[in-house]
């Protein structure tokens, strides 16, 4: 019985390790250059009951990076989206909402922003993790970020992907 438990435990750990090793981005060729699509990543929420999953689309021939995020919270009247890491900051009220949907007790809003490429690349040069802040009219400010260990890994992957794409 103990052996069986140990085996099940080892298999579970192994599956989660392998699952986490799956590719983080994909590369495509386009007329405007190379497109690197970073698969959705869930950030840790600093408030209970809210979540943020975001993905990025980096095209070498363009001067901005597409950042799409699914923001799940009790309210959906988003006013401002802010991205910051270290000394770099990008704040915008110029965003598009693709859709809003009821998700259990929350409302999921799919937000689209364009982040200038130089600022975006500066985020991933910073030692401090990226923080995404979403301000809504009805609810308090929602903050999401990477865990320090995940940030180190994510930074390295994004750097590698961008260098390979150029």
């Amino acid at each position: 019985m103990n052996r069986l438990r140990l085996l099940i435990g080892c298999v579970s750990i192994f599956v989660s390790v392998i699952a986490s090793a799956q590719g983080r981005y994909s590369l495509r060729l386009m007329d405007e250059g190379n497109m690197v699509f970073f698969y959705p990543c869930k950030l840790a929420s600093l408030q209970k009951g809210r979540s943020l999953v975001y993905d990025m689309n980096y095209i070498t021939g363009r001067d901005s990076v597409v950042v799409n995020m699914t923001f799940s919270a009790p309210c959906s009247d988003v006013e401002t989206v802010k991205l910051m890491a270290g000394d770099s900051l990008y704040e915008t009220t110029d965003f598009t909402v693709f859709y809003r949907e009821r998700e259990k007790k929350n409302i999921a809003s799919r937000i689209h922003i364009l982040c200038p490429k130089d600022i975006y690349e500066a985020f991933f040069r910073s030692d401090k993790p990226l923080v995404v802040e979403v301000t809504t009219k009805s609810c308090s400010v929602s903050r999401f970020s990477y865990k320090p260990s995940s940030w180190k890994k994510e930074r390295a992957i994004v750097h590698e992907a961008i260098e390979l794409a150029k």
Binding site: V11, V15, A19, Q22, D55, N68, T70, F98, Y99, R110
Partner: peptide
């Protein structure tokens, strides 16, 4: 919907699995 796409050009499917426990 997730990509804000209104005109689809092509679709791929990626399958990742650890047989028989986990499939994504």
């Amino acid at each position: 919907k997730e990509g804000g796409i209104k005109k689809i050009s092509h679709v791929d499917v990626e399958t990742f699995g650890v047989f028989p426990f986990y499939t994504k």
